[in-house]
Structure formats: C-alpha cells, structure tokens
Nucleic acid binder design. Sequence first.
DNA 1: GATGAATGAGATTTCATTCAT
DNA 2: TATGAATGAAATCTCATTCAT
Lengths: 196, 196, 196, 196
Amino acid sequence: MKKDKPKYKQIIDAAVVVIAENGYHSSQVSKIAKKAGVADGTIYLYFKNKEDILISLFQDKMGQFIERIEQETTSRQTAEEKLLTLVETHFEQLAADHHLAIVTQLELRQSNKELRSKINQVLKRYLAVIDQILEEGIKEKLFRDDLNRKLVRQLIFGMMDEAVTNWVMKDQRYHIGDQAKEVHSFIINGLTLHKS
Amino acid sequence: MKKDKPKYKQIIDAAVVVIAENGYHSSQVSKIAKKAGVADGTIYLYFKNKEDILISLFQDKMGQFIERIEQETTSRQTAEEKLLTLVETHFEQLAADHHLAIVTQLELRQSNKELRSKINQVLKRYLAVIDQILEEGIKEKLFRDDLNRKLVRQLIFGMMDEAVTNWVMKDQRYHIGDQAKEVHSFIINGLTLHKS
Amino acid sequence: MKKDKPKYKQIIDAAVVVIAENGYHSSQVSKIAKKAGVADGTIYLYFKNKEDILISLFQDKMGQFIERIEQETTSRQTAEEKLLTLVETHFEQLAADHHLAIVTQLELRQSNKELRSKINQVLKRYLAVIDQILEEGIKEKLFRDDLNRKLVRQLIFGMMDEAVTNWVMKDQRYHIGDQAKEVHSFIINGLTLHKS
Amino acid sequence: MKKDKPKYKQIIDAAVVVIAENGYHSSQVSKIAKKAGVADGTIYLYFKNKEDILISLFQDKMGQFIERIEQETTSRQTAEEKLLTLVETHFEQLAADHHLAIVTQLELRQSNKELRSKINQVLKRYLAVIDQILEEGIKEKLFRDDLNRKLVRQLIFGMMDEAVTNWVMKDQRYHIGDQAKEVHSFIINGLTLHKS
DNA sequence: GATGAATGAGATTTCATTCAT
DNA sequence: TATGAATGAAATCTCATTCAT
C-alpha cells in the first residue's frame, strides 16, 4: 500500500470520523469512501480490505500517539516527572481528538482476536516506554524493585485505559485531563496513607 | 422471559461455550441453539433477541461473580485484607472458568455501545463493592482520603481487568492467581519505595 | 442437500429456464429464486452455492437423459439399431426441451475447469452406453474391431454434440431429429462409397 | 485498431498465455497488460474492449491455423489423402502450442453467445475447407453423395474437436497426433466391417 | 502514443427472526 | 411450548474502462 499518498491519510481520517459517529458496524466502506471524497473502489487501492483500514488507522494514529509521549517524557528529568507527563500526554491527546478517543476506546475493541493481536503489537511500543520509566525510577532508588515490571506496566496502562474509557462512555462530559495528577499520585503512592 | 426454567440456563451455558470457542462473530443463534439442544425458534421463547442472550449471560454470570466477591470480602477484617481477597477472588473465579474468561475479556467487548452501556450497569454493583472497601479503609485511617473515590475504584478495576485480559490474550498460559498479591501490593503501596 | 423436497426440483427447473433465457452470466441467484417462487436465501438451503445449482442441474437432467437412452437402446435388437435409437433419442430429448438444450450446449460450457471435470463424470456414464453398443456390434461381427473403442465413442459423442450445438446456435430453426438417420448412416458407413 | 503494430501481437500472445495459465475468469485485463509489458490503458488503444482481445486472438491464431491446413491439404492428391492431412495438421498444430490448445478447447468456450457467434464466423472458413475436400471426394466417386454435406462437415469437425478437447482435459498426457490415422479411418469407413 | 490512478456498478451469501404446524 | 423451514435485507469487493497527464 502507498502510505505516503495523500489519499491514504484522507481515507484514514475519514474512517476515524465515520466510525466514531456511526459505530464500527454501521460504518460501511461506502460511507467511509464518501466522507473521504473518493470512490468505493479507491479504498481498495490503498487498503487490502475493510479490516485493513482499521489496523492501518490504529497503527497510524497510535504511532503518532506514542511518538508524542516518547518526546514529551524524554524531556523530563526524574522518573516521577516522566510518569506524570506520560499520564498527562496520554489524556491530553485523546481529549484533543474526541473522534479518535471513541474509536480507540470503544469501536476498535469490537474486533476479533486476530485484529486485537495486531493491535497489541502496536501497544508493545507503548508498554516499552512505560517500562523504561520504571527502570529509571528503580535505578534512581525512587521506585520499588520488588514488583514484576511486566505486570506493573500493564497495570499502569490498564488504569489509564479504564479512566479514558469511562470518560468516553460518559460522553466526554468532564475533563479527563483533570484526572492526570490524581492518577499519577495513585500510581506513585498507592492507597496507603503515608506520613510525609 | 422465564428465567427460572431449566432451558433458560441451558441456553446461557451453551452461549458461553459457543462464544468462547468460536468467537462472537461466528456464534450464530443456530449454533447456540444446537449446543443447547433446542430449536432455533425456542431461543426466542426465552430471549427477546440475540443481544438479549448476551446481556442475560453477562447479568447471570457477573451476578454470581460479584456475589461471590461480596461474600468473600465480607468475612475479612481490614480493608486491606478485603482488597486482597477481592483481587484474589476476581482472578480465581475467571481462572476457574476459562470459557467465561474469554467471553468477558474479549468477546463481549465486540458489542455495540448500547450493549456496553448495559454491561456497565452490571459493573456498577462491582464498583460499589470496591467503593465500600475504600470507604472502610479511609475510616480505618489506613487509606488516604485525598483521592476521588469514584476515580480510584475505576483505576483498581482497570488494573485487574487489564491483568486478566492480558492473561487471556496469552492463552491463559500462566497462573493469573499468582499475580494477585503483587497487584494488591501495587494498589496499596504504589510505585514509591517506602522505608518500612 | 435435500434432493427429494419439491423445492429442490422447483429451483432446478427455474434455473434451467432462467439460464436458457438470460445466459449464465445474467442469471443472478435472485432471478432464479424469483422464478422458482422462493426467497433468495432459500436457494442456499438446497444448494451450497450458485455453482452447485449448475452441477446439480446437470446431474439431475443428464441423469434422466442418459437413463432414457439406456431404456430405449436396450429394447433394440442389433447394435446398429441401438445406435440409431441412441442418436434419435439424444436428438429428440434435447429437441423436446429447448431450454435444456441451450443450457447443456452453450451455457454450461461457460464454466471453469473444475465444473467441467464434474460434468465429465456424468458423461462417463453416457460414454459407457456407447461403448457397450460398440462391443455388441463387434461381437456380432458387424462393427470393425481395429479401432480404439475409447476413441471411437468420443468421436461419436463429438458428432452428436456438434450437431446439437450447431442446431442451438442456429436458434433451433430446423428439426434436429431429421438429422438422426444421416448421422447414424455416417457413423456406420463413413464417407466411403460402398457398392451394395 | 492497428493490427500491424508490434504491440498488437504482443498483447495477443500475452493473452493466450495468461488465459491458458489462469483460466478465462482469472484473466483480468491488468494481468494481460502486465504480461505484455504495457500499461492497462494501452490495451484500449489496440482493442475495443476485453472481448475484442478474445475475438482478435481467435481470428489471429485460427487464421494461421486454417491457412496452414489449407496449404498442407492443397499439396495432396486425393480427397482421402487431403482428409488425412487435415486431421493430422489439425492435431499437430494444437499439439505444438499447448497454451493455444487450452484456450481454444476450454477457455474460449466460457464466453457468451455473442462471442461464440463471432467465433463461429471464423470457423466457417475451416468448414469451407472440409467442404471442398468432401466435394472433391464425391467428384472422384470416392465419397458417397447421399449425405448432407453441411451436416457431414460439422460432424467431422465435431469429431476432431472432441478428440482434442478430451486430450486437453486429460492434461495433454498422450500424443494426440497418434490418433489422426484412426480418426481418419473412422471418418472414411465408419463402423461397418467392410470386406476388402 | 502511453500511462495507471481512479472510478462505481453490481451480485453472492449470511443469518437473525418469524410463524405455521 | 417447541419446532425448523423459510425469509429477505444488506454490504464487501472486483475489475473493465476512462481520462488527465
């Protein structure tokens, strides 16, 4: 597929909007084509089939999503700051594109195991970013090292994901960005009441 | 619908197995009927439509799931113990029924927003259980009270959910129960290295 | 497939007419269904797919076709008489059902090699009938025995087939039955001028 | 159309190979263009449409085919010899180009009635060659004159055609040329055992 | 003449649901 | 209650053809 052609992006962007507005199952190829301003058949010059639009969409958008998070976190000093930035950037990016938020949190999960597997490939890169921050924190003697890092990074992702999903299910009626600090605080300190 | 008749349960149980084994999109009503040993038409004497099977399945199975968690946690003394029991019972129950695990973690998410909304209704009861434990912990001066409880209970659910989903995606090849203590420890203490 | 149900025959018969009148490529399943007086989906209760209609049609109709030829030829005494009866019955049967003639001579050949292969299976039975007549004729010291029988039966079939195809291509504007005696005479005596 | 340009032949030859190897229905215009080393659009500078490729292919190849038969038969003395040469040359030419054999015997028949009609136009010239040999044989008092010549020439064509088709269907695993003498003998003498 | 990206009409097949028995 | 044969709407994808460059 020719990923550098403008029509490729045109179709991806149309797909995000159409899927967000109509739901995955009501997003016929013809609807996406119409929104993209191309003929139905043109879709198939750029994508193998309908599912390939979804996969490409996810790879494309999540690629940018993670890249942005990588950039932002790198510029911070401590692991704790990096983690806060990660949560903030995660929330902000999805808050900034409410169509994309619907697609990633709801519609993209309506896919079969095979597609989910490919989605997970993309997420591995995100988990690696979290992992690195954890490693830094441990080296800094700031984070505990008695927990399975692979598990912890999943848990952190699970928290952010659930927070965003809930916000989308609630029709994005509050500011998800406002929750970043609390989520970060919970990740860092857990539930226990620590005397400072 | 006649929820007390044996055929009602028969169909629900068949649906869990069929969906787990074939995936949501390959689970035709006729396949479920065959597994349940009834005629296609009989399904519609007990359920309004196909979606109603899914909702009923979730209500039925999740009802028992949460009930069991309520029972187990009640018998514990402290909020911390209750939380550990909650995580353990959550993991154990899904580990004990691998068909149900597949259905709740993967296949049931392939439904539309409307169905997800009904599923969330059921989950509210679960969130209430978590909420109560949080409240107790705060009263016991064990848990911090500076966090939005509604958010925190979501985050806790998100962690467990992600842990189980990952285990299912990895074809249940490890013991999810083994992660309960670590998840609990992470929830309680967070990432920070606390001097004991 | 349930070949004894009346709907099975209904669909086959509709298919013959629709294909004869519209040509194979313009014979949509929906057109056949309409002619048969059933819903589109009903077709698929009796046939695996569209091609299966064609195969079944051929097996069904050709089965009867060959059976009739077997019956008619059996009742004749000499191999020569049997051969005449075979040619006559071949021509008569197709002359009696002009829709079927179009389908077997033109439309059914528009199929891929796989289907042709299945068609050839059916024709084997016909070739066997010719073969037996040849054998009898040789035993009667009436037919020469210096020719490869497998080849000769093909040639005989080829002659009749070409005669019928030509008649169909000419829109069945003459009586194909009138050619039976000449075809028979040519098969028996060939081109050579024999002094009687 | 510009039939003398090299690209015209290039495309025809590519079409023979592509159709023989992929079958008629899998022989997209783009595939033929690729094989011919031209752009899709270029095809339409030389042919009106896809069907025109087929017709031109048949006219071109069959033109040569018949020409060769005309040449070879002319050089023979008697009608009987000419007929043997005709059968031999028919078989030999198709044996020499197995791609063409597949195309003429199988794939080209998968066309609609309209195309078949045009194909028949081409065949008329072939039938005329046979006709002339028959006429000569009758004049020579070698062939009987009690048969409809138009019918007989069809029957002769039908025999050769069926023999070749069977050979192609059997994946050309035997030497079709070996059958020429027998076919000729059968045409000349028929089935009857003549005392010499 | 040559290109090849874009077009868009069109048909098979599935499957949730119904209803006469 | 229970059945299961019949329904029919609906959508992906292909590919011959065009036309701006």
